[in-house]
């Protein structure tokens, strides 16, 4: 299922593994934790080969998607579980548990039984339980997916703060691009069991290495066209579009252009691009449009207040596409 996965994660880094469901990201995480064995390949931790080391002694903490809290123990009982097995003294345990519960704002619920906690509270206990033993690596398996959207944003910030403060190297698996972009120092995009791209969030977002990454991370539309090198023009069906001066596309000939919705801007003045409006979705702060250009669908999103005209479905609207911000890939 996983192939040619080669990742190096620096000490203290917050690293995300991003991909659609079924791409193998959870499997990769479970292999790192030691719950599953790779058929080949190695896992190195601090330069040590830990591939055959049991999860018990690997020194890897994990925050499970369903939290996996022990229902018959209190909050404190859950959090001190790992410390006990590391042979910490009672005073040490009390001090560390108190500190970590404070860090996740659960100091007042230390004696609460786990089943009485809300989803957000359970999530924070799960993080505290994994982090309190100060593992070499802290693994997160889509920890926010069971929370409601409002709680998700605030918990995201808390996780980031906690990681900064403790400096624990963290690997975070998610299918939510916003989570990966906002949390990570670097991230890897996984697709069908292979790594498509590794880099900082800005790098990966601005310069996707494949149409898949552009589509998955930037929600980009993929347009098929052809670039004429000499006239520096892009041909889209019957349309011929001049590329901006000073912009040199990396490929010529048949290409796939990944166009992010924010780079498709409705304008007031006349334009050579006048796609048909198929649908308008008002989202409050932003408005998104589904347009049809020369038989190809293309998405546009813009801040509602900057919209100079109110596009209606069935009409055509003049647009500008910022080609120098698009990604060009050779067409296979």
């Amino acid at each position: 299922m996983l192939e040619r996965v080669n990742l190096q994660i620096a000490s203290g880094e917050f690293f995300s593994i991003l991909g659609p469901s079924g791409c193998g990201k959870t499997t990769l995480l479970r292999i790192i934790a030691g719950f599953e064995q790779p058929t080949e390949g190695r896992i190195l931790l601090d330069g040590q080969d830990v591939t055959s080391v049991s999860p018990r002694t690997r020194g890897v903490g994990m925050v499970f998607q369903n939290y996996a809290l022990f229902p018959h123990m209190t909050v404190a009982g859950n959090v001190q579980f790992g410390l006990r097995h590391k042979g910490a003294t009672t005073s040490e345990i009390r001090q560390k548990v108190g500190k970590i519960l404070e860090a996740v704002h659960m100091e007042n619920r230390a004696d609460a039984p786990v089943p009485l906690l809300s989803g957000g509270e359970q999530q924070r206990v799960a993080v505290a339980r994994a982090a309190v033993v100060e593992p070499g690596v802290l693994l997160f398996d889509e920890p926010l997916s069971n929370l409601d959207p409002a709680l998700r944003a605030s918990t995201r910030e808390e996780i980031k703060t906690l990681q900064r403060r403790t400096g624990i190297t963290s690997i975070y698996v998610t299918h939510d691009q916003a989570e990966a972009l906002s949390l990570s120092d670097r991230l890897a995009v996984l697709h069908d069991g292979t790594v498509e791209q590794v880099g900082s969030p800005q790098e990966v977002y601005d310069r996707p290495s494949s149409p898949f990454v552009a589509g998955f991370l930037g929600n980009a539309t993929l347009l098929r066209g052809e670039i004429d090198a000499r006239s520096r023009q892009l041909r889209l069906g019957n349309l011929v579009v001049p590329l901006p001066s000073g912009f040199l596309p990396p490929h010529t000939g048949p290409v796939v252009v990944a166009v992010k919705p924010e780079n498709v801007v409705p304008v007031r003045e006349a334009s050579s691009l006048n796609p048909l409006v198929r649908s308008v979705e008002y989202q409050g702060f932003t408005t998104s449009l589904l347009l049809n250009l020369e038989g190809q669908d293309i998405r546009s999103i813009c801040v509602t207040s900057t919209l100079e005209v109110a596009p209606r479905p069935g009409q055509s609207v003049p647009i500008r596409i910022d080609w120098d911000r698009c990604s060009f890939f050779p067409k296979k």
């Binding site: 934790a33 030691g34 049991s54 018990r56 903490g61 499970f64 998607q65 996996a68 022990f70 579980f81």
Partner: peptide, 18 residues
């Protein structure tokens, strides 16, 4: 019995007997 509960305990250092 949720398997991840056992995995959580294992990764926190509990032995099989534990």
């Amino acid at each position: 019995l949720d398997a991840s509960r056992i995995e959580a305990a294992e990764s926190l250092g509990a032995s099989p007997l534990n």
